[in-house]
Amino acid sequence: MDAIDRAIVNRLQEGFPIAAHPYREAAEALGISEEELIRRLNRMLERKQLSRFGPMYHAERLGGGLSLCAMSIPADDFERVAEQVNAFPEVAHNYQRDHRLNMWFVLATETPERIPRVLEEIERITGYQVYDMPKEQEFFVGLKFEV
């Protein structure tokens, strides 16, 4: 990544024009051409430096269910359970963390009512308890990565 890539990443994490020629507008603000912006975005997507280029949705306002869930899995059973949990399309991402509760994943469902059903299903298939910790209050969301 060079300085122009970094400027693109920093700037376009803050928004993107909703207008007829959005790449041209964004490129002008960055001092490059529309073609160069598109070429660089394509390249960063191909290199998997970017996960997506497009909208970030607010799950709850779209009527969806969202929760952070944790499980405590013995080391020798971790692989099996990770595979089973990740196979659920509702599991959006899953991280191992260093705590007795060592598996942490986000569950995103089409409706809030689906959350408890998917949790039960995960418990039934894996044989372990799931601790469900939905967001109760938001103090700050500003997930942005300066590069």
Binding site: M1, I8, V9, L12, Q13, E14, G15, F16, I18, A19, A20, L41, R47, K48, Q49, L50, S51, R52, F53, G54, P55, M56, Y57, H58, R61, L62, V141, F145, V147
Partner: peptide, 27 residues
């Protein structure tokens, strides 16, 4: 354009733009 702008105005779209893979960027 109008519908996407309205979805963003209502907060259904939090924002448009880049979603990074933070691991790959060194985080």
């Amino acid at each position: 354009i109008e519908r996407i702008a309205a979805l963003q105005e209502e907060g259904i779209i939090k924002r448009m733009g880049i979603v990074v893979r933070h691991h790959e960027l060194g985080y």
